[in-house]
Design a protein around this nucleic acid. Structure first.
Lengths: 320, 320
DNA sequence: TCTCGCTCATAAGCCCACCTTATGCCCCCA
DNA sequence: TGGGGGCATAAGGTGGGCTTATGAGCGAGA
């Protein structure tokens, strides 16, 4: 085993995961085998021949060093480890499907039946999921996506370039009607080594306002909400133009940052960042669907809108 | 373009996403370009040549029909759409990293410095993330994973086959000490079309107990908790042996199901399932780390254990 | 009991995707 | 005014994954 030498010597950063993880086609094939209970049936579904599927699954087992499938003359079932691996594979494929839905919407600028304009945070974290759900319900709805800030979303709606918008700011741009589709909280985070991470009591609003923070640029929805909550006082330590850049700086230990909880799922779970409780500030904000006043969403826009209502009143925020 | 014909005719289910989504290597390369600001630098990091990187990025742009990178004689920066696409790509790569961490732990049975035994739900949903975090902190810790039910976890600990265990049952197996590492809730779900999905009031415990449900097999941690909460009365409509099978049956409309919230993130967000409020039952359960009485975790086991303590007291459940 | 139909495996051959090396052009800075 | 970043193009090799063709195990029905 272990064709790649230097296994014990701690990954020297080369050997990207692409060499250790089967490609998406193989993972998809594995899911099909799990669902259909037969290599041949899975092959048929994916439009390849049975020997191709057989060899591909075998190659995957060899690469992983794990027996995934129990073959028998009456079909194939997953082994126990195969079931576990398949569950992990499903996550990868689902992320790929979201990627596909998102890029497809970005691409289809023209001749789409539904043109959506969304602010960055929503486009990044929520829209791909919504688009997948919409595709599941109305497979023939072609959707196009324009991402920008709140102002550009509003402009695109009033000029008729978009049918439905999503914004995350504090106030609804003039000329638009809106409906709340989700809630979001801003969270103060630091690297685990930061002194704030060891505090025993919540941070006071005043302290937050007087401490230089890693922030999104002025004008971003996130910054807008924070400034309003603190009374326009947020002091920037650095200003960065993307959520990702802010996260990276915070993980690197540059200082405390303020970010949407939507952006922080993974980082908090893996303790790359820790959340700092704050009291005396309202960092909750609403994510809204918007449309030109009077033009109530109809057709595809209405379908999408009806998908975005919170899953259920009693369900937790269901971030991610 | 579009070598594969039948592009316009609405996806006929063939044409798997693997054909529409760049492979993991390309996505990883895109992330490196985003981080390093140069195709050549990204190529170097991944151990390929600059022309290879250049052509691969170009091929990806062509396939997606999107301009992702702004090339200049002084380096390359992401375009706006490129930044968005990169964020989506990061999800795919992170899922692949979790897959890698998980399969690697399954493979390395022998000669591992830390041998973990975990119940299925925890192995499926939480462990890969913990393993990634551990790898980030202690890169040279080789971990092996054994997945099974609570009883087998306990057995492996007392026989010395495993150093640290994770269980989800109600009670700690005898002979083991434990610490709570996370909480979990069981949620009643149905397909959106089910009558329960239109209820205006919470379901009474009695009604839940008398309705046939899609359930995991007797003996699973999930079933155990539900039986206890209802007083041993849960009536099975079907019994299935995996969380995934239960989900699939529920999505298909077979009836109401009871599942861990850990398993339901995606399905609830995309409204393939809706959660049904229930009152008068305590469906919360604790996920615990366990080890042989007296043998307090030390070394790598302690490192892993310290990672699994909830991110922070004020953070919401942060379900995956 | 034979045979058909399903399953999976193996072998031989083709082809494309991706890599490499070898260039060239552009721009900035010392 | 070179040198050293950056990127693109061209030509050539190689391997992974596909196909077709075939064989072998097992079960159900005639």
């Amino acid at each position: 085993m272990s064709e790649t030498s230097g296994q014990g010597g701690a990954r020297k950063q080369g050997d990207s995961i692409a060499h250790r993880v089967p490609d998406l086609g193989a993972l998809e094939l594995l899911l099909a085998v799990a669902r259909l209970g037969s290599l041949g049936a899975a092959a048929r579904e994916l439009g390849i021949t049975q020997p191709a599927a057989s060899s591909r699954i075998r190659a995957m087992e060899r690469r992983l060093g794990l027996a995934l499938v129990d073959r028998s003359p009456r079909g194939s079932r997953l082994t126990d480890t195969g079931a576990l691996v398949t569950d992990w594979a499903r996550r990868v494929v689902e992320a790929a499907e979201a990627f596909d839905a998102g890029t497809q919407a970005l691409r289809d600028r023209r001749d789409s039946r539904l043109r959506v304009a969304a602010s960055m945070t929503i486009a990044e974290y929520l829209l791909p999921g919504w688009l997948l759900a919409l595709r599941a319900q109305r497979p023939d709805t072609a959707v196009s996506l324009l991402a920008g800030n709140s102002a550009s979303v509003a402009e695109r709606l009033v000029t008729g370039e978009a049918d439905l918008g999503f914004v995350e700011g504090l106030d609804v741009p003039p000329g638009l009607d809106s409906a709340v589709v989700a809630h979001d909280r801003l969270i103060v985070v630091t690297a685990p080594g930061h002194p704030w991470a060891r505090r025993r009591h919540a941070l006071a609003a005043g302290e937050l306002a007087t401490t230089p923070l890693i922030l999104r640029e002025k004008g971003s929805g996130t910054r807008q909400v924070l400034d309003a909550a603190l009374g326009g006082l947020a002091r920037p330590l650095i200003e960065l133009s993307s959520t990702t850049a802010v996260k990276a700086a915070a993980v690197g230990g540059a200082g405390p940052a303020v970010l949407s909880e939507l952006a922080l799922g993974e980082e908090l779970a893996m303790r790359r960042l820790v959340s700092i409780p704050v009291e005396g500030v309202r960092l909750r904000r609403e994510l809204r669907a918007v449309w030109p006043t009077g033009h109530r969403p109809a057709g595809p826009a209405r379908d999408l809108l009806s998908l975005t209502r919170g899953p259920s009143p009693t369900t937790p925020p269901a971030n991610r």
